[in-house]
Amino acid sequence: MEKQRDAASILIADDEKNICFAMQFLLEGQGYDVTCVEDGAQAIDALQSSQPQLLLLDLTMPKLNGYEVCQAARADPRLGAMRILIVSAQCKDVAVEKAMAMGADGYLKKPFSSADVISAVGTLLNGSPSEGQH
């Protein structure tokens, strides 16, 4: 599918390369502009240079964990409009609560289906799952 000119930009920060690849493939197929990074420090760098509309963030990453990235992003006024979706294998309720307390907008527990990702991304970017699907 061709990217639209006003395609929403998404940054994926996850150290699992296979998931990164699959999600990039999936979301680009949906018409989004997707960039991937593999650890927290790279994510912070990427956020310095660009302001994506959505950050797909793993919690357990080398260098800086996802909570830290989330906290830093929320402290940066330029990223005020950016939505943050946590994609993590941490499945305890308390992990979800902590992520939300630190500024995340949504939480997807691994494993998830492609439809789950498309729906969650669509909801965060457009307010409803259906509008997000191109």
Binding site: N65, D93, E97, M102
Partner: peptide
């Protein structure tokens, strides 16, 4: 959904990596 013990102050928050 749960109960908490809170330590409260006025000032800067703590970075998660510092807390870790």
């Amino acid at each position: 959904t749960r109960r908490y013990l809170d330590i409260i102050w006025s000032g800067d928050p703590i970075r998660d990596s510092t807390l870790c």
